[in-house]
Structures are given as C-alpha cells and as structure tokens.
C-alpha cells in the first residue's frame, strides 16, 4: 500500500517535473552507468550508423575522386541492372537455400549439444567435450577452409572412408550438388561449441526445484527435458532465432570464396560473392552497393517478420 502510494506520488512528480527534468535527474542518478554506456553508443554511431550515409552511392554513378557530392545521380539504375542480371534468380536461390539449410541444421545443433552436455554428470568429461568443440571457433577461417579442401580432396580422409566402403575416389569440392552439404556440415563443426555457450548459460537459470518437483511426480529424464528444460530455454532460443532470421540473406563471402570453383558456381555463387567479384575486383562501387542495400532490405524484412512471429507464438520478441 505504501509502495503503491509512493509510486503514484513519483509518477505525479515526474509529470510535474517535465521531460527534461526527468532526463536530467535520471542522468545524474545513474551517471556512472551512462558513462559506461557511452563508448558502446559511440561505437554504434561511428561504425554502424555513420556508414549508412555511404549507401547513397547505390543511387549514383559513383566516382571516388568526385566523392558523394560530385558524382552523378542515376536513380534506381543500379538496382534494375541487378534485377535484370542473368544470374539474379540463381544468386537469390543459392543465398536463401544455403542460409535456410544453415538454419535448419545449423541452428538446432548447439541446442542439442547443450542439452546433451546438460545431462552429463561427469564434470571432467563435460569440460573436455566443451573445450574440444570450442576449438574450431578460434582457428582462422582460412585455415579451416584449408582443412576442408584437404579433407575433401581425392587423397583426403573422406575419400579414404569412401574407398573403404567400395566407393570411388572423387574430389568432393568439384561437385556442385555436394557444395551445400560440405558448407553446412563444416559450419556446424566450426560453430557448434561456441554457439552452445549461451544455451548452457540459459540452462543454469532453470530453477532446480522444478526438477525436484517433477521427479517426485514421477517424471523421467525425457519428460523433464520436454516439460522443464525446453520451455525453460525457449525464450533464449526464440530470441536467437529472431536474430538469426535477420541474417537469412547474409552468407559470409569469405568461406564461399575459399571453397567455390567455377564448376560449383551453380550452387555456391551467392549474393555476397557476386558483390565481391563485382565491387572489389571490378571496381563497380555503385553496383555492388546497390546489391548490398537490396540484400539488407530483405534481411530487415525477415527480421521484422520473425519478430512478429515470435510475438504471436511465444510472446517472446525483441521490440
């Protein structure tokens, strides 16, 4: 009762004080927190919001010497050029499919690993597994791709296995139909350990009493998993999924470039690699910016959609 009246009084007072006074008071009261926040805000403004201005060159025939002010405006020319590109649909399809498989198989992988680790009682074994699965995360991508090229080559370990079972040796990276599998499987290998950390953290937050109560009620391990653990980490999972959806059209070009070949362009050439070939190798700044911008717009709409879906399904959302 007392608290409520204080709240009401506080609210009234705020109204009396007005917005600026409120901000001032808040700043004063939490000044150290705001000071700590400052570098992060500055970082986002300098490195993430500032460069957005540069996206205007997508509507220009940009020439570095003339700068943004001096270059001629061409409207949507660069965009229509891309839409009429012979490879437009192939690039979209490859990007979406690769990303879709990454989500379909790559997204649940760390969750499964975290759940499995959670069931392990032997701490030493648990830690060993964790360390081993983290390791690839710390290896440079170039080296990782070197591994992949080696493993999949004709004399590589995968071909050794294939041969043992009577198959014929073949360089796997030359086959367009295998590219996505190689990419996704290696991606899981690369990220599963690191990705599981956040779920392991979420698991520790589940109240241990719930498990005890469930055990008294006669729930086995499976039932506990289904009715306590999974609902317990569901908010984390959904937030992660929303964030992941925001990157659905973004397939990092580095790894594809290190693994693809003209003969696998059919399945491997994605928007970002095309931008790379066009923008960095052929110096068409405006064209590649236009493609990048188009990509971001689609990403953004996926993010909004995922957020909306999360809200509807589980009432978990970002904003």
């Amino acid at each position: 009762m007392r608290m409520q009246s204080r709240l009401i009084a506080g609210r009234l007072k705020i109204k009396v004080d007005g917005f600026t006074a409120k901000v001032k008071r808040d700043l004063l009261r939490h000044k150290y927190i705001y000071i700590m926040l400052l570098p992060v805000v500055a970082y986002y403004f300098i490195f993430h919001y500032g460069p957005i201005y540069g996206a205007v060159i997508a509507f220009q025939d940009y020439s570095p010497a003339l700068g943004v002010e001096g270059s001629t405006w061409v409207g949507f020319q660069n965009f229509t050029d891309f839409f009429h590109n012979y490879y437009f649909w192939r690039l979209i399809k490859n990007t979406v499919l690769l990303s879709f498989y990454l989500i379909l198989f790559g997204f649940p992988a760390p969750i499964v690993l975290a759940l499995m680790l959670n069931e392990v009682n032997n701490t030493r074994f648990k830690r060993t597994v964790q360390t081993v699965t983290y390791l690839p995360h710390f290896i440079s991508l170039v080296v990782i791709c070197g591994f992949i090229v080696n493993f999949t080559s004709r004399g590589g370990i995968i071909n050794d296995i294939i041969e043992t079972f009577g198959g014929e040796r073949y360089n796997l990276l030359l086959k367009p139909e295998l590219f996505r599998s190689i990419y996704v499987v290696s991606d899981i290998w690369q990220t599963v350990g690191w990705g599981s950390i956040i779920y392991l953290a979420a698991l520790t937050n589940i109240d241990i009493e719930l498990y005890q109560a469930a055990m008294i009620d006669g729930a086995g391990r499976w039932k506990q998993l289904m009715h306590i653990t999974l609902p317990g980490i569901a908010p984390t999972v959904i937030i992660m999924l929303i964030l992941r959806m925001g990157r659905i059209m973004t397939v990092g070009f580095e790894k594809v470039i290190l693994l693809y070949l003209p003969s696998t362009y059919e399945t491997a050439d994605v928007i970002s690699t095309y931008v790379y070939r066009m923008g960095l190798q052929k110096f068409s700044y405006s064209y590649s910016t236009a493609i990048g911008l188009f990509n971001s717009v689609i990403n953004c709409s996926f993010l909004i959609f995922a957020n909306y879906a999360g809200k509807k399904v589980n009432n978990t959302y970002l904003w």
């Binding site: 003209p262 003969s263 362009y265 070939r277 052929k282």
Partner: peptide, 23 residues
Amino acid sequence: FANIYGEIETYVSEMILKFILGQ
C-alpha cells in the same frame, strides 16, 4: 562491356570447367 561481359565471363568459366570435368 563490364555489365554484359561480367555475366558471360561467369557463365563461360563455369561451363569450361564443367565440360572438362565431364559434368
């Protein structure tokens, strides 16, 4: 030239390798 040939180049390099590899 860059616009047209950019596409052709991609196509040709892809096909040449596919022809050679028997794909």
